[in-house]
């Protein structure tokens, strides 16, 4: 069941139909003695509608990879396409526009604006882009994350789990091509984590959302369709859906 070699998708193959696609991505921090190769040539594709989990030991490059895939950081070399657009050559403004259209985020620290209500927070990506909110979709999302009676509350009046649900709804409000989540359950207790994962799963199943999630938690990764393992800046394992126990085995084998 192990496929020890990282999948090396054929460079010539058409990359459409993919939500995100990376080719030979490297990332080097610093130079000389202090240099760190955070990514050493990563190529990976995420088809539309896939829920992928990225795992690996601390410092293996998970966050770096995710940030580059999301256009928040630029690779030292290699190419990244989001929904058919090459993003490594885009200017800040074009990247911002692309993020508005195609990318959603859920962060470990929920990152809600404390002075806005839950509803205003979740609408933020649309209002900042000056785009019309689809009221049906908003209603569906609010219902899905179970915040109907909390719309007018401020983040400080919400529990951590509720805040993260607002953040998830915010990430989905623009119907992005891909939702990136860096340890979205890292700050939640296990019951709230499970709730969160159910919601992520539901958005994939019901709305066909593509999700790339970085996590340390095997149980979180177990709700994904695919589990990738990074070590020292390389993808060392690439699996389909795995159960939590199997995931822990791989984690152990990598340590």
């Amino acid at each position: 069941m192990t496929s020890p070699t990282p999948p090396s998708p054929d460079g010539a193959a058409p990359r459409d139909g993919l939500a995100v696609s990376a080719r030979d991505v490297t990332k080097r921090y610093g130079s000389g003695d202090a240099k760190v190769d955070a990514l050493r040539g990563v190529s990976v594709d995420f088809p539309r509608g896939q829920f992928a989990a990225v795992m690996g030991p601390s410092g293996s490059g998970k966050s770096t990879l995710m940030n580059i895939l999301a256009g928040l950081d630029t690779p030292t070399s290699g190419s990244v396409m989001i929904d058919g657009t090459e993003i490594t050559t885009l200017k800040d403004r074009q990247l911002t526009m692309l993020r508005r259209e195609k990318v959603g985020f859920v962060f470990q620290f929920f990152n809600l604006l404390p002075m806005l209500t839950a509803e205003e927070n979740l609408e933020l990506p649309m209002s900042i882009a000056g785009r019309k909110i689809d009221p049906e979709w908003e209603k569906e999302l609010v219902g899905a994350v179970g915040l109907d009676d909390r719309r007018r509350h401020r983040p400080s009046e919400l529990s951590g789990g509720q805040q993260q649900r607002v953040a998830l709804a915010r990430g989905l409000i623009s119907r992005p091509a891909v939702l990136f989540a860096d340890e979205p359950t890292g700050n939640l207790d296990s019951a709230t984590s499970e709730e969160m994962l159910r919601l992520l799963r539901r958005s994939v199943d019901e709305f066909g959302q593509t999700i790339v999630m970085v996590t340390h938690d095997g149980r979180a990764a177990a709700s994904a369709d695919r589990v990738l393992f990074l070590r020292d800046g390389e993808i060392v394992e690439d699996h389909g859906h795995l159960e939590a126990d199997a995931i822990y085995d791989v984690v152990k084998s990598l340590e």
């Binding site: 999301a70 928040l72 800040d92 403004r93 911002t96 526009m97 993020r99 508005r100 959603g104 985020f105 962060f107 620290f109 990152n111 604006l113 933020l124 990506p125 900042i128 882009a129 915010r170 623009s174």
Partner: peptide
């Protein structure tokens, strides 16, 4: 800083 980063991540332009 973190809020501003979030705002930028979700599509706030520099001008905004």
């Amino acid at each position: 800083t973190r809020e501003i980063g979030m705002l930028r991540a979700i599509g706030t332009t520099r001008r905004q």
